[in-house]
Amino acid sequence: MEHRLPPSPIPDVIVCPHCDAAYKLARPAHGQRAVCVRCHTVLIAPRFKAGLQIIAVSIAVVILVIAATVFPFLTIRAAGASNSVSIIDAALAFSDGPLVVLSLSTAALIIFIPLLRVLLALYVLVPVVLDKMPARGSRQAFRLAEALRPWSMAEIFAIGVAVALVKITDLADVAFGAAFWIFALVVLLVVIQDRFMCRWTVWKSLDGLRK
């Protein structure tokens, strides 16, 4: 019986995922970036102690997201009547009939996907930073985290809040709850976490892992 060897990767070459340009692999120094010359895609961008910083930021995000969903987000008052909502309430506003689907996806886009991505990043990075063997299923975890990247919309929700506030300040008094400020911090930290991470370095560190 013919025994087929698995194909072996070609070392010392890197290919731009956007335009297919091939380059001889040269690892840039910390703080520098390797950029594709023709389409300007950033290929490698390592940072000094990025792993530790990402872990710290990620833990903060997990705690803050949980806090942001528990505490009241906004309170509205007009002519004696008042109503107070949390982020979960806002996400689940589409509750009648077929709009339930929209409720669930809104909740996912603004809370669960950002939270899940951060948890996956922790799962992948903690063993790597501690110089241990990568955790089981690290590749699948990081793959999922990357696939979910465009669907993490916390920062877009923040702009939505700003627009909604302008729309109703004429009609009623709006008071900010604790969750409002916590959520603002979450948005900032999620962006920082995303910026610090060099995908190439993470994949490289998962190289030694058996499937």
Binding site: L74, I76, V85, D89, A93, G160, V161, A164, K167, A172
Partner: peptide, 12 residues
């Protein structure tokens, strides 16, 4: 998201 926030909040 604007619609979501308004529908949740403006329930007086």
């Amino acid at each position: 998201f604007v619609v979501a926030i308004l529908s949740a909040l403006v329930q007086l």
